[in-house]
Design a protein around this nucleic acid. Structure first.
Lengths: 194, 194, 194, 194
DNA sequence: CATGAATGAGAGTTCATTCAT
DNA sequence: GATGAATGAACTCTCATTCAT
């Protein structure tokens, strides 16, 4: 597959991403993607065999670009609390966003495909986020910003709360206030006064 | 609708439940349910128009029967900590169970149907669970079992963690140990020593 | 499947037969048969899963109706030679007929489906034809019409020649004269003077 | 077309032959052949327009190389009976061979293409085989090996029996014993004692 | 009420064939 | 000459939904 093919594949994945954002995973057909890309029916099959394959590529591309969840938050003289807060605000924005989100499609994809439980991109992201938060909390404890006895447990707790908020946002609905309240609760747990 | 019709409807819903447990929500077709019920294709349409309608009925029946999430745990002389622990154990069992769970189907259903965000059974269950946990914690605080400054916040935190664990179990996979660890973390947050 | 279904199935098989006669086996699609029957696309699938299944049914029906290859030839006072000659004439007509023949389709079907080598309708027909010809020759020998030392071998020889003529008719082409010549040759082998 | 082109064409035909041997004629697509040859899709079209054209070339090449059906059998001091027997043994081997045979593909090809009935390679091969067998029988009669009144008729009979065996091998199945039995029958018809 | 045959829309998939490079 | 990406027609198959009985 030449240079051009790589570009076209990328093009398809980008267009497909929009479709998945729009419709989730299950509802999306090869036809939908063909139409979104404005290519021929057979053309798509030159690059991908099915929607799962395309979605996995979308996820891969996503995780490549988004590896820097924290990098935005980390600036020269930011404190641990600043960084954590920024990260949580970022997550809030993400989880409240109705559109331009792959959240639902991602869940649906993992529901449908029991297989990739191991070496699961989602899991890797979760674990690495826990690690980073843990380091952050440790740093905060060191310089007296945070109070925390079980940094790892707290990091994991934060991530599960975020997961809970995320899925709740997609199902029972969650308001900005509700998210703020949870963020406050988490910060207070670290000994941060408002 | 006569008595007989009510019974048949109930029969359909029960059979359909098995199908949803087995296949989630999206993948299920009217044909699947017709076959599971061993009734005629047209027959099903006399009672339900589509799978969404059937699933909502499944959910309704479910919540009627399961309103007593706590009732099992509450006995005469159980302490607040006992009850909370029993509840959490119950949730653990539920979320680790691969089969006989409507979890996935429920998520899929709410993904597909943006509509029932309001008067959403899931939301009601969530809110009422928060309430009950809050009362429980308050009781625990009163008799010195728990230490807690923000009972409502803590109750909500517990529920979001459970939601996070539940969705994680369906996507990235969660081990029994991981769940135990979270439960311990939550209890320690209430000042409970192991 | 009720009485009506049986009739419709029969109707489909009859229409499909025409299609197979027209186009052989391989070229025929479910769509072709749907169109020939003037039923809906999905309708055909209620009765048959694929063209092989339909063709097998065509063959079965064919063999039911045609079990009496010889019965036409057998009359009260016909001699063995008469009957044999009539049979051979019948075969001649059959193998020279361009249209209304399942020959080609049958060959194609057996090419495609290696499976039914055993309990193969074609084989049964061949074997039973050999048996009948053998009996016929024996009868002819008994009453002095034929001279033959190895009736079974001769019967089989006749059938293989007929098979050879049949496939030749479909591939290299065979004239009426050529068939007559072979028939004469076979009869002379039985000591019959023209 | 240059020297190189001729070679490439030959290469394609040889590779295509393998495909036809493997899959018959009808099932073979241009894509199959492209893949077998490991050339480009468009490249094949520079040489052939469709599978029929390719197959005809395969047949032509085949008949060029195989014109010597008998040449193997004919040695200095072999008797007519020896040669005939060798030829029949050769045919037996051929028709029992499951793989490496173009038989099925050839039949399918002639089924599909009504056209080449005239100037039909198959026919030429058949006719020339009849001629040769006839000469052989005449020679055998001359030196007292065979008894035969109608050499041409007998030669043709032999060829039709072989055709019958060949197609039977492909459809109803034929055992080595069955072939031997037919060969014996044919030889006895020529007055040859076992 | 209940049945289940029938319809037809629509998704998936494969290839023959073309054509710019 | 040669390549292989691209197109689009054609086929298979599945269901939601209707309707005569």
């Amino acid at each position: 597959m030449g240079e051009k093919s790589v570009q076209k594949k990328r093009y398809i994945v980008e267009k497909a991403r929009e479709v998945f954002v729009e419709k989730g995973f299950k509802k999306v057909t090869m036809k939908d993607i063909v139409e979104a890309c404005d290519i021929s029916r057979g053309g798509l099959y030159l690059y991908f065999e099915n929607t799962s394959q395309i979605f996995m590529e979308v996820l891969r591309m996503e995780s490549e670009e988004a590896d820097d969840v924290f990098s935005d938050s980390i600036t020269e003289d930011a404190t641990a609390a600043d960084i954590l807060l920024l990260f949580l605000k970022e997550q809030k924005k993400e989880l409240l966003r109705k559109k331009n989100t792959l959240t639902q499609a991602t869940y649906e994809f993992y529901f449908e495909n029991e297989l990739p439980k191991r070496d699961n991109i989602l899991k890797k992201q979760f674990d690495s986020a826990v690690k980073i938060i843990e380091k952050l909390i440790e740093a905060g404890v060191d310089n007296g910003e945070f109070i925390c006895e079980d940094c790892e447990g707290t990091a994991r707790n934060i991530m599960f709360v975020l997961e809970g908020l995320k899925i709740s946002a997609q199902t029972i609905g969650v308001t900005a206030e509700a998210v703020d309240r949870e963020i406050l609760y988490l910060l207070r747990g670290l000994g941060v006064e408002d």
